[in-house]
């Protein structure tokens, strides 16, 4: 039995330890906000937070994230839209929207861990693929988030606090 802490809830799953977290989330738990894009950690569509850090769930076995706090896009906004999600609406970023869960999770973790990332740090950290080409708007949104930073956390506060 695998025990996972997901979005503040304890979930018991009778699954193989090597099952990637992505498929546990999507097929076993019905948390479909986290997307499958490539299966080899090359696109970032499956990004979730583990103890507030962005990881690519398609290559992360569930055995590696037991006893951690896992947050998915569904849990990120449990207490209302976060600053990153609000910025995504303000800048009208999503087009098809498929990559945006992963994009939002990646950007949220970056801004939480690094209050003032420079252009290079953003580029290094946000390597998610968006085929609709929303990058120019994402860049503007990130710049705005850095410039107008508030005390509101970018990641699920409960997950961060428990680290």
């Amino acid at each position: 039995m695998i025990e996972l802490q997901i979005n503040g809830e304890t979930r018991q799953l009778d699954i193989e330890p090597e099952m990637p977290l992505l498929w546990a989330l999507r097929n076993e738990l019905g948390l479909t906000g986290t997307k499958f894009g490539c299966g080899i950690a090359a696109c970032g569509a499956c990004t979730v937070h583990v103890n507030g850090q962005a990881i690519r769930s398609c290559v992360t076995p569930v055995s590696a994230v037991q006893n951690t706090q896992i947050t998915t896009i569904e849990g990120l906004s449990a207490g209302g839209l976060t600053p990153v999600q609000q910025a995504w609406i303000q800048h009208q970023i999503p087009q098809c929207g498929y990559c945006q869960s992963g994009m939002i999770m990646a950007v949220s973790a970056l801004l939480e861990s690094n209050p003032n990332p420079d252009e290079q740090a953003v580029a290094n950290s946000i390597s998610n693929v968006c085929r609709c080409g929303t990058y120019p708007r994402i860049s503007k949104a990130i710049a705005g988030l850095i410039a107008n930073r508030t005390d509101t956390p970018f990641v699920d506060a409960t997950a961060e606090a428990s680290v």
């Binding site: 609406i89 999503p94 929207g97």
Partner: peptide, 15 residues
Amino acid sequence: DIPAKVDGTAQFGID
């Protein structure tokens, strides 16, 4: 369509 695409609730065929 954008609000559903920032909180993970938008439903794609795969979902």
